[in-house]
Write a protein that binds this DNA or RNA. Structure first.
Lengths: 249, 249
DNA sequence: CGACACTTTGAAGACGATCAACGCCGGTGG
DNA sequence: CCACCGGCGTTGATCGTCTTCAAAGTGTCG
């Protein structure tokens, strides 16, 4: 099972730096391999490192005191882990566990490394920008949890998934187990299973683990509900959810 | 109705700078008064300014395309508006409207001002830290939406409210209308009303607009569920929700 | 006093969670 | 090679919770 080394010189984190600078900074990272099911760190452990996922996928998950489990995020190639924990300057322990969903390779940096490169104005702006975008995504997610039913949320998730992974909207295979996706969406596997069928009425077809968007559900044709009728911004179209509207079944 | 000028030299944003530097930076801000019900900006308008709320409270709200309204946040004295929108570097228009919940005073800065001071490493770290904390809060909120029932979420919200406003836990008056709080929590006013009564079993008493925490519900005595039994971090205790656990009524 | 916004209460309905059972598949061990 | 097992996914039935619609109560302000 070969893994493709993620081209680290494309890290948004280091955008705008010279190639030599990038190389110098990256060189201090240690490549580590985590087989499927192994933990990068556990909830409650001190925050010691910053990570860049080079291949595979890590699940950020926490078990709550009353027995439930919530998947906060699924981190894929090119994304980072630990930014907020390190920069927050308040908590020094992880609030979630990180677990390899599949065999994964990550680059590991000391926490101090991130703090030091954040002193560089260019890097600082890069991080600020990425945190701001993440906040925007979270705000949408909260909004959706309040205003959308499960079918709409799932549809949006699948659209984002398709864009994020560069899948073919006409037909692609789910990259994760259905249980994991359900956990990410905060719903039960049973509900997930049932909801998949409802998506046909939105123009999203399901066959086994294969998803296909009909033209009517294609991302390119959707109007971004958050730009409303003001304009259709392409970035938003790609990332934002909220593309599906309630149907009177 | 007098307003207390917020002591701007305590802004977390400018922490670590010299007093002269702070004064110089703040001096470029323009003080603006917004009467209750007036808008600071509307959803869809271009992002032109950064704001610091000096007194009063601003509601960040968006109407979704299918007619629902969601209150993203309620911004009070000392908090800022526009950080993420300006730093995101992608969208140039507001995703929410900002509306004065009560007569408010804000300090207004050009968007470019924020970008320029973010070049200062000290300021950049301050912003990074505050964004990281905000992200942490949002992550908890998402988790709670999936794992807690309305009563628990409301209880947590009231505890945070009490800490944030420095209210007396033994008895304080709600600073906002019940409809606004319901909107902030993403529930209907009817549900809010009904849920308030359920809180008595958690040791939270309600009489009209007055809330009182019984000893058993006092924040100081709660164990932070996110530090689990690992340790009880005081910061977390103050800010975090998740303090109430499911009761078998 | 009356208009109006806000809040509360009641009853019906929609939706997701839960519990239980079954089918499917890959792996293990005899 | 086959039987067994465990993980995963589906399906059905039931239950609790929140929304929705409707109506009545409460308060404030002109």
């Amino acid at each position: 099972m070969p893994y493709t080394t993620y081209s680290l010189d494309k890290l948004p984190l280091l955008a705008g730096l010279k190639d030599e600078e990038k190389k110098a900074l990256i060189s201090s990272g240690i490549e580590r391999h985590y087989p499927k099911g192994s933990y990068l760190f556990h909830c409650g452990e001190p925050v010691t490192h910053f990570y860049v996922v080079c291949s595979g996928a890590m699940q950020l998950v926490r078990g709550t005191t009353d027995g439930k489990e919530v998947t906060q995020d699924i981190v894929i190639q090119g994304k980072t882990i630990g930014k907020t924990e390190i920069l927050q300057q308040v908590h020094k322990i992880h609030m979630v566990s990180a677990l390899a969903v599949e065999d994964s390779v990550v680059l590991e940096f000391p926490a101090a490394w991130l703090k030091s490169i954040a002193q560089n104005p260019t890097v600082a702006l890069n991080i600020l920008s990425s945190l701001s975008q993440y906040i925007h995504m979270m705000e949408l997610e909260v909004e959706h949890k309040s205003t959308m039913d499960t079918a709409q949320q799932l549809g949006c998730f699948l659209q984002r998934l398709c864009v994020l992974h560069n899948f073919d909207p006409k037909g692609f295979t789910l990259p994760y187990s259905k249980s994991l996706i359900a956990s990410r969406l905060g719903i039960e596997p049973e509900t997930f299973s049932r909801t998949l069928k409802k998506l046909k009425s939105y123009g999203i077809g399901i066959k086994g683990n294969t998803i296909s968007f009909a033209d009517s559900a294609l991302i390119e044709q959707s109007v971004c509900s958050h730009c409303s009728s003001l304009e259709t911004c392409s970035t938003h179209k790609a990332v934002v959810t909220g593309l599906l509207h309630k149907k009177s079944s």
